[in-house]
Design a protein around this nucleic acid. Structure first.
Length: 574
RNA sequence: CGGGGCGUGGCGUAGUCUGGCUUAACGCACGGGCUUUGGGAGCCCGAGAUCGUGGGUUCGAAUCCCACCGCCCCGACCA
């Protein structure tokens, strides 16, 4: 590819609205352009990278027996009504009517279509197991896109679906995907770690997310330094300390105490001269279906909203309750507790439930209660772990200190079970002559997000440094001094043509720009090898070969470079 | 949806507070010419902007007021 013909432009200045390095570089180097919020065009360079990422994924999925296919982006709403998601999912799913006034949706994912195909095609256990996948556009009208390609509204995703006779088959497909993903991310140059993740309301039984560490990541990971524990904080197990005063402390009588101006736990503990671990903190949420949830954790812990939402099976998630809602249930924000409250679901953390004599709110401004004890003083609806793991806290596996890091989800694997196949009636006839629902798993990798994460991991102050596996071109040929030394354009053109003929096209900067411009662009664009051909290099006996990632450079003989670029020889290292 | 910020040639910005000095300025990029050619070259000429949109105030609006739209960041949200 001649750079003079490439549909692109590099920018000397950073785009004003790009904060993440990957976004800044992909825009500056002419890989992507933004069309609207969360909507991006892939320019030819960006498209080539994406296709290479796609090919890595394709090869690894084919290795575990995946069969590539393609399902539509537009679905009849009826299909989504059958699974129940048409009404469950909010405005993030785009809907419209076709010319026949039929309700249609734009796909956010493809479980329904797969289940629909299964009920049509699979009759017998002999047809299972099967893994199908496709690379297809998804549209999710996110409330807020951010971070360039990291979180967008329209994106191409590899989604695969495993279809098995039973749980054992699902388990095998699940771990096959786990292994495939591990290979994929390694090949992509991403240090991804698999963390246990939330299965949420989907009725699944197990899920992992593959995460790359990044300060801009939207998820918090709980990691053990020894590597024996890794989980999304949403689901991280929290080993609890014993009650602050000892488990066998005798319950004392309830006692109201004036605590003016102590609406926060820190103020309260300081005012009473006690540790935060002797207090119970109440926080309030409202579910999507309008229930008030009162969550009680020990004062030195924080509520984990995912765990809480799961504990109360919150439809439509949780949002912080407002003051009116809290007061309507007989509680006082800042001084609240379930004592005397009504019309609220009370969820108590297990540590609170077994901690005697905590200080809790009196539901009266400026007052708290000492010596609150369960179940003497109020009755929880649910007792379970609803706390966030804390940095430095004990690892559930080894007891060592935990660390918290932000991460970006580059892939996920999920045991769906029979939710969709039962809903849509996708059954097979087993060896036993009985009808059984097909057992599904679903597995996703977002392409654009992976491209951005690769750049996050492989760039420097000058630009991108693509791993060879995904680079849009294997090498960037810079020809200099073409008007002074006729051999330069001759050789460059010959190499360019030979490489193309060998099916491994080069990017050749054939422009009549100054050397500085060409070198700067070559470093910005980030091909793994920069080959400089100039009167100077010829005088030194060949062409200069520079490794983009390390900056290591050496002059190599012309014949060897030509053989390498033409695909008939190794990269010269002499 | 809440909070904050921003919208001025392709990109980055100044000008806005304090209306007129603007025929809207500057750098980069772009076209032509000459010179230059191993690290974002120099000089000359040139094209390119309904100052986000609509309304209002005013003798006069990029600038003040109202409404709307768009984008970015934080939060909420994320099957």
């Amino acid at each position: 590819m001649r750079l003079s013909r490439l549909f692109f432009t590099s920018l000397r200045d950073d785009p004003a609205d790009a904060e993440m390095p990957s976004h800044r570089l992909l825009v500056r180097a002419g890989y992507v352009r933004q069309l609207g919020s969360g909507l991006y065009s892939l320019l030819p360079l960006g498209f080539r990278v994406t296709k290479r990422v796609e090919q890595v994924i394709r090869e690894e999925l084919d290795r575990i027996g995946g069969q590539e296919m393609e399902m539509p982006v537009v679905h009849p709403a009826e299909l989504w009504r059958e699974s129940g998601r048409y009404d469950q999912i909010g405005p993030e799913m785009a809907r419209f009517k076709d010319r026949g006034d039929r309700d249609m949706v734009i796909a956010m994912t493809h479980e329904e279509v797969v289940a629909d195909l299964l009920r049509d095609i699979v009759k017998s256990y002999r047809q299972l197991p099967v893994i199908v996948y496709h690379f297809q556009t998804k549209f999710r009208d996110e409330p807020r896109s951010r971070g360039g390609l990291i979180r967008v509204r329209e994106f191409v995703m590899k989604d695969s679906y495993s279809c098995d006779r039973d749980e054992a088959g699902l388990d095998a497909a699940y771990w096959a995907h786990h292994a495939a993903y591990t290979r994929i991310f390694e090949r992509l140059g991403l240090q991804a770690i698999a963390v246990s993740s939330d299965v949420g309301m989907m009725g699944g039984s197990q899920a992992h997310e593959f995460m790359v560490l990044n300060p801009a990541g939207e998820d918090v990971l709980v990691l053990c330094e020894t590597g024996d524990y890794a989980a999304n904080r949403q689901v991280a197990v929290v080993p609890k300390p014993g009650p602050a005063g000892g488990a066998d402390e005798a319950p004392l009588p309830l006692e109201e105490v004036a605590t003016p101006g102590t609406a926060t736990i820190a103020d309260l503990a300081a005012f009473l001269g006690i540790g935060e671990d002797r207090t119970a903190k109440a926080t309030f949420f409202t579910t999507g279906d309008g229930r008030l949830v009162t969550a009680i954790v020990r004062g030195d812990f924080d509520v984990n909203e995912t765990k809480l939402a799961n504990a109360v099976k919150a439809i439509g998630g949780l949002r912080p309750a407002n003051v009116e809602e809290i007061k309507a249930a007989g509680m006082e924000p800042g001084y609240g507790s379930p004592i005397g409250a009504h019309d609220t679901v009370v969820v108590v953390d297990d540590l609170v439930a077994r901690s005697p004599n905590l200080v809790a709110g009196a539901n009266r401004e400026g007052f708290h209660l000492r010596n609150v004890n369960l179940p003497r003083d109020y009755t929880p609806d649910v007792v379970t772990d609803i706390t966030n793991a804390r940095a430095g806290g004990p690892c559930p596996a080894c007891g060592g200190p935990l660390i918290l890091r932000n991460g970006i989800e580059v892939g996920n694997i999920f045991k769906l079970g029979t939710k969709y196949t039962e809903a849509l009636g996708a059954f097979y006839l087993g060896e036993d002559g009985e009808r059984h629902p097909i057992v599904m798993g679903s597995y996703g990798i977002g392409l654009g997000r992976n491209v951005a994460c690769i750049v996050e991991a492989h760039h420097d102050a000058k630009g991108i440094a693509w791993p060879e596996e995904v680079a849009p071109y294997p090498a960037h040929l810079v020809s200099i001094g073409a008007d002074k030394e006729p051999r330069v354009p001759e050789i460059a053109e010959r190499w360019h043509d030979a490489a193309a003929a060998a099916g491994r096209e080069l990017l050749w900067d054939d422009r009549s720009e100054s050397p500085g411009v060409k070198f700067t662009d070559a470093e910005l664009l980030g091909m793994p090898w920069i080959v400089t051909l100039s009167p100077r290099s010829l005088a030194a006996g060949g062409a200069e070969v520079t490794e983009r990632a390390t900056g290591a450079r050496a002059v190599q003989p012309l014949a060897e470079v030509e053989a390498w670029l033409s695909g008939v020889g190794p990269r010269p290292t002499g």
